[in-house]
Simulated scan of single mutants.
Amino acid sequence: MELDTTLTFEEWVASRVSALLRFAWLVTGSQHEAEDALQTALAKACADWDRIGGRDEVDAYVRRMIANAHVSAWRRFGRWQSPAADVRAPGATAIAGVDAGVVERDLVWRVCSTLPRQQRAAVVLRYYEDYDTAEIARILDCAEATVRSHLHRALARLRSELERGGDDG
């Protein structure tokens, strides 16, 4: 998104908050964590708006801030959290009245949410946000080869888990 340098921070946020929250949710896998990461990133962006507001790629810059905020929060608090197992009946693959495509997308997202954070971020940026490897590398602050490695490993794990999950149901 090309930035109009006459936009105030509040105007920019109003026009981008939905997309940024969606991105944060895809990276974190949790509405609560997404809101926290977005709030942290926007607070920093607001404080630095005079410096970053004129950049061509403000969206990419703030997305990286969101990813960094999430990783930082996980480093601080992640070791104290014990996620509960998914509460579903064993072998349950369909819900009455729900389209099979919705169930499949839910399964894909549940498997995606088990990926390591950098792999999940790479998958989200590539397949949900449609960035190329150079843009992903810039956002995640790593080499393009690392992005390709993250994507390769993530897709291999997704295939394996989905094939295994398909045989169980």
Rank of each mutant, 00 (worst) to 15 (best):
M1Q: 02
M1A: 05
M1K: 03
L3T: 14
D4M: 11
T6K: 13
L7I: 03
T8S: 15
T8C: 04
T8Y: 04
W12Y: 15
A14C: 01
A14L: 12
S15G: 11
S15N: 07
R16Y: 09
R16P: 06
V17F: 06
S18G: 14
L21T: 04
L21Q: 12
A24N: 00
W25A: 02
L26P: 00
L26H: 13
V27H: 07
S30D: 10
Q31I: 01
H32E: 14
E33R: 12
E33K: 14
E33T: 00
A34H: 11
D36M: 06
L38Y: 11
L38N: 08
Q39L: 09
T40P: 04
A43P: 00
K44G: 02
K44L: 05
K44E: 08
A47P: 00
A47M: 11
D50H: 14
R51E: 08
G54H: 10
D56E: 15
D59R: 12
A60S: 07
Y61G: 00
V62R: 07
V62M: 11
R63F: 05
R63H: 00
R63N: 00
R64M: 05
I66K: 05
A69M: 13
H70M: 05
W74Q: 10
R75F: 02
R76W: 03
R76F: 04
F77T: 11
G78A: 06
S82R: 11
A84T: 10
D86V: 15
D86K: 14
V87Y: 05
V87G: 01
R88L: 09
P90S: 09
T93K: 08
G97M: 08
G97D: 09
V98T: 07
G101S: 14
V102W: 12
R105H: 08
V108T: 02
C112E: 03
L115T: 07
P116S: 06
R117S: 01
R117D: 05
A121E: 08
A122V: 02
D130P: 00
D132T: 02
T133N: 09
E135C: 01
I136C: 01
I136K: 10
I139C: 01
C142V: 15
A143Q: 15
A145H: 06
T146S: 12
V147M: 01
V147L: 02
R148N: 15
S149V: 04
S149T: 13
H150C: 11
L151T: 13
H152Q: 12
R153V: 03
A154N: 05
E161N: 13
L162T: 07
G166T: 12
G166L: 11
D168S: 11
D168G: 02
